[in-house]
């Protein structure tokens, strides 16, 4: 379970990137966070991972305050970052092996890694190839495999579909649905409204650091999610004019 309680981040340059975010993502729930560039999505994820200190409020992972017990809290979260390069001189399997061990999975075999890579749709011949020869999408898949292998109850994804071809993106979302079925709490930041519509249990729209709208699946299925999103963005444009 992921919880944000009045979570606030003001950067050193006084930029208010996140303004009192309140959010709870339950087990077996996929939450999509939409929002324009600079809305505060990555900031939210960074706060959950304790990469940055909040200036107010709390972020909890499985009820553990991430600023008070950062190490303990990180046991319960997997992270898929946007555009990760990984270790170019290592093979896909070596990359997986290293991060698996960091995540506490020390007794996985070569076949385990192969199986997981097959699951995310990586081609067999890529398993033992150096990562520097990989395309962006292939790297992204390895990044996702790393998160899956850790098998943590919470998963944070920051624009994981960026750079993936439509088929790969669809496969990734299918994997997320599977993970959700296993009872994981999933927070995914994205610009991909169409995908959100397909698999999200809830969708939030973020604007200038504030969560301006949250809709459940039932609610946004009635309306056109894209229209809602555009309306919220429009307001901003109108305000500014």
């Amino acid at each position: 379970m992921l919880q944000a309680i009045d979570l606030t981040k003001r950067y050193e340059d006084q930029q208010l990137a996140l303004d009192a975010l309140n959010l709870e993502i339950k087990e077996g729930e996929i939450f999509f966070l939409l929002g324009a560039n600079g809305a505060g999505k990555t900031t939210t994820i960074n706060l959950f991972l304790n990469f940055i200190e909040p200036t107010g409020g709390r972020a909890l992972i499985n009820g553990i305050d991430v600023t008070k017990e950062p190490l303990e809290s990180k046991k319960y979260v997997s992270y898929v970052s946007e555009n990760v390069m990984l270790y170019g001189n290592f093979t896909a399997r070596q990359n997986l092996d290293f991060f698996a061990k960091l995540g506490g999975k020390t007794n996985l075999t070569r076949d385990d890694y192969y199986m997981r890579m097959r699951e995310v749709g990586l081609q067999e011949e890529a398993f033992e190839k150096k990562l520097k020869t990989f395309s962006k999408g292939m790297r992204q898949k390895v990044g996702l495999t790393i998160a899956i292998i850790k098998d943590a109850p919470n998963i944070l994804l920051d624009e994981p579909t960026a750079g993936l071809d439509p088929k790969a993106a669809a496969e990734l979302l299918q994997i997320l649905v599977n993970l959700k079925r296993q009872g994981k709490s999933i927070l995914m930041c994205t610009h991909d409204i169409f995908r959100a519509k397909n698999i999200a249990d809830r969708v939030g729209i973020m604007k200038e650091g504030r969560l301006v709208m949250v809709r459940t699946r039932e609610e946004f299925m009635e309306d056109d999610l894209e229209k809602i999103y555009m309306n919220y963005m429009q307001e901003m444009v109108i305000e500014k004019v």
């Binding site: 990469f51 190490l71 046991k75 990760v84 990984l86 991060f99 960091l102």
Partner: peptide, 15 residues
């Protein structure tokens, strides 16, 4: 840091 691997490492329970 550029490779993003540092973020991935630090996302684990590693001091």
């Amino acid at each position: 840091k550029e490779n993003g691997t540092l973020r991935l490492i630090v996302a684990n329970a590693v001091p």
